[in-house]
């Protein structure tokens, strides 16, 4: 049994008076593929944003790869993390957003090479070689010199995946990466993610409303409701035999809304 690569311990997160996460604990094994499902507003995105340090926490501890994410060793114990510590921690984590967030003023190739060159001191040549390999992998070898505005949504999202992969993170976070796409473009993005899941040992956390995909992709499914993990288990358990009533209700609604399981 290896050490967990992510260990969240009694995390709470408040926005003003609103409590979004409430004493949440979660451990993720290296290489594990997690699907986070649950109703809107249940805190799924917030979990990913916390791991990416886009959001701070109101209480608790997060450990990534054996080190505290928001704290660092200081005089007489742990002190809040400074910028340098956050940069150090971010090298292990990559994120793909619902709305792609590509850099619109940079070509596809530059989108992918920018961070490796700036943050890892990779030479432009090496960065471009790797970027072209990644573009090949996501099926966009011919788009290297295109601008993001010339791409379809599905293509943009595949570039965004390549951009995150270029930094070789140990952990990848995917936040509803297909929900801003036209239905006919969803599959091309899911295919890329299937390949990633099959061919790499990256740890992956996926927030999704695509239950069929979650079922095939995940080793473990977490059902969120109101800032808590209500139920978790293997995909078959959660999707075929949910124990909690709230999970059952949620899945019934999703199926009624036309999503396949």
């Amino acid at each position: 049994m290896s050490e967990p690569i992510i260990r969240m311990d009694s995390i709470s997160k408040r926005f003003g008076a609103l409590t979004v996460l409430d004493g949440l604990s979660l451990q993720v094994r290296p290489g594990e593929k997690l699907a986070l499902i649950g109703p809107s507003g249940s805190g799924k995105t917030t979990i990913l944003r916390i791991l990416m340090t886009l959001e701070s926490i109101s209480g608790g501890h997060v450990e990534v790869d054996g080190e505290q994410l928001f704290h660092m060793p200081g005089q007489g114990g742990l002190v809040p993390a400074n910028e340098a510590h956050l940069h150090h921690m971010r090298t292990r984590i990559g994120m793909v957003f619902q709305h792609f967030n590509l850099f619109p003023h940079k070509s596809v190739l530059d989108n992918i090479t920018l961070a490796p060159i700036l943050t890892k001191g990779v030479s432009r040549r090496d960065a471009e070689v790797k970027a072209r390999e990644l573009l090949e992998m996501v099926g966009l070898a011919d788009k290297a010199s295109s601008m993001p505005s010339q791409l379809s949504g599905g293509q943009k999202q595949r570039v965004a995946i390549a951009r995150a992969l270029a930094l070789s993170p140990k952990i990848m976070l995917f936040d509803e990466v297909t929900s801003a796409l036209d239905p006919e473009l969803v599959e091309e993005v899911l295919n890329v993610m299937r390949r990633l899941a099959a061919e790499t040992d990256m740890t992956m956390l996926l927030v999704t409303h695509e239950m069929g995909f979650a079922h095939d992709f995940a080793d473990r499914v977490l059902f969120f409701d109101r800032g808590r993990i209500v139920e978790e288990g293997a995909p078959d358990e959660i999707f075929r035999h949910p124990k909690q009533e709230r999970t059952q209700t949620f899945l019934r609604k999703i199926i009624a809304a036309g999503h396949r399981v």
Binding site: M52, T53, L54, H87, G94, M95, H99, N101, F103
Partner: peptide, 27 residues
């Protein structure tokens, strides 16, 4: 400049300065 640009810059681990110079100001 879209809020997502700041977040994308953070997600690829750019420093504050790099974010201003390479992502925010050019837009």
């Amino acid at each position: 400049v879209a809020k997502g640009q700041w977040e994308a810059a953070k997600a690829v681990n750019l420093t504050k300065r790099q974010t201003w110079v390479h992502v925010i100001l050019p837009q």
